[in-house]
Design a protein around this nucleic acid. Structure first.
Lengths: 278, 278
DNA sequence: GCGCTTTTGTACTGTTTCGTACTGAATTTT
DNA sequence: AAAATTCAGTACGAAACAGTACAAAAGCGC
């Protein structure tokens, strides 16, 4: 689309013999206009980017690259230098920690409300956490090296990123509490709700085996918990397919952690917007 | 000490009749010199402050207040606006989340390696986390309102704070994994080691009841776990007194989480210092 | 020293989850 | 269509831990 548009313009300018009067940054501006237009008119948004004004957004998008990544891609492997900072616009990334016995524990998830790899702004690497795509995602990514300069230059960007970090911290904290106090069934329900919120389609594609790893319980435990949810009419499930049929009832089966996180995100965002206005 | 020093100087200046040649900021400089001297020569240090150069450190300490706080003080209550940002120099603060049924879950601890209330730099409040003094602490604190300006002005401060946040996030993540996969005894051992590292005296003053809340297990469970540790010769315990008698053996009883966190903190700090030099 | 409170040690039952194994169903490969 | 593979449902003993209760020990106030 943008390529075709460019050809037309160039053609047009040629006809007019107006080569020399085109300012140096004409095509850059054009490209940015297309980028901004694509971002703003799109349904795919990221909360951090949304908090920026148009000028800052241009600045960021000018250094960004739009990517689609499928499930299983590790966008930030643990202990490795971060190559990119990701602004997720759709799908879901899960943050997980691997213990020395090989057990994997999911500590949080990131969707369009957050960023992955933010540590790059202070020149840190990924630390002990792996960030893996769990639901096919799209997003904008900025090279880590460029991100440092951007976040130094654009204060609102820095601020929004750190505010998103607080969201991740909330979530990891809640995870810690949740895995300690709540039953498998409650946690499965919570996880399905969170995944459902970040999935473009009503059916989630996860096997019990996969869920058992994410929830840190046995595969058989997932089957039992899923059976409970199915019998109470919240979900239907088949081979690697789970469909939420009754969201409200599923929330009743979930622990408070789901609504706590949702409320807190809501509270934080209204706190921020009231500050920005006042 | 600093007061006596001032009096002498003033007296000296009077004798010399040198009132008028004293620059406006003479006493400010003097006060800062005393502050810096007190900080640098002291055994009480904070990693974030330590990463600053003298000029920036002066700037921060000039807006800071030295405080001693005893166990039980909530220095940052959940959902409340943050009054201060704390740079802990000794003792220990625990971060905890309270579930709706009243259960409290400790999600991490902060000692002289970190800060409490850092969210103030992006104008957030405390969120769902309570920060409570667990081992009598000392530290410098800066009013939240002043901290915003400071962190905007001093890039290295901002950077060090965010790097410390990564440390807290590591810890909360490890907590989430730990409470899911490791036994009560392992977790008790881990907790005692972490508390021991941050305590000025060899004996920790905690009752089984108190520990049970922090670890999220039954009081009787703590007694049993403590008995195991005692029988394996790691600790001795009496009424609200726990003494680590064999640190190495206690580490063997603890889960990997303790050493994982320690290694990661070490790794991060050498990563940072290599960046600052390179 | 004496009574009261706090703290600790221990025991017992019930629940949850684990580890494991076996089976059938659904899907993919050949 | 048959074979192979993946996935889901179920079962059962073992382990860890919750909930609870009770008594002994240590410390505190008078």
């Amino acid at each position: 689309m943008s390529a075709i548009l460019c050809v037309f313009i160039v053609f047009d300018l040629k006809i007019m013999g107006a080569y020399t009067i085109v300012p140096n940054n004409y095509f850059l501006e054009l490209r940015l206009m297309v980028l901004i237009e694509k971002y703003i008119s799109g349904v795919m948004r990221n909360s951090v980017l949304d908090s920026l004004n148009v000028e800052d957004l241009k600045d960021v998008l000018n250094h960004a690259e739009f990517v689609k990544l499928n499930r299983g891609v590790i966008i930030a492997p643990s202990f490795k230098p971060l190559e990119h900072v990701y602004f997720v616009t759709s799908g879901m990334v899960s943050l997980s920690l691997t213990l020395s016995d090989g057990a994997v524990v999911e500590t949080g998830v990131v969707g369009s409300e957050g960023t992955v790899g933010w540590q790059a702004i202070v020149e840190l690497d990924a630390g002990p956490i792996d960030a893996t795509v769990q639901i096919d995602m799209t997003g904008y990514r900025v090279k880590a090296s460029q991100m440092i300069a951007l976040s130094d230059r654009i204060k609102p960007l820095r601020k929004a990123i750190i505010q998103a970090v607080q969201g991740t911290l909330d979530q990891v904290s809640q995870s810690a509490a949740c895995s300690q106090r709540h039953t498998s069934t409650q946690r499965l329900a919570k996880w399905l709700l969170m995944a459902g919120d970040r999935s473009p389609e009503p059916t989630l594609h996860f096997s019990h085996e996969g869920l058992s790893i994410l929830l840190g319980i046995r595969r058989a435990g997932v089957t039992v918990a899923m059976g409970e949810l199915r019998r109470s009419g919240c979900v239907t499930n088949g081979h690697s397919k789970i469909t939420i049929t009754n969201r409200d009832r599923l929330e009743l089966s979930a622990c408070e952690c789901y609504s706590a996180l949702k409320n807190e995100a809501q509270r934080r965002s209204s706190l921020i917007s009231s500050l920005n206005q006042g």
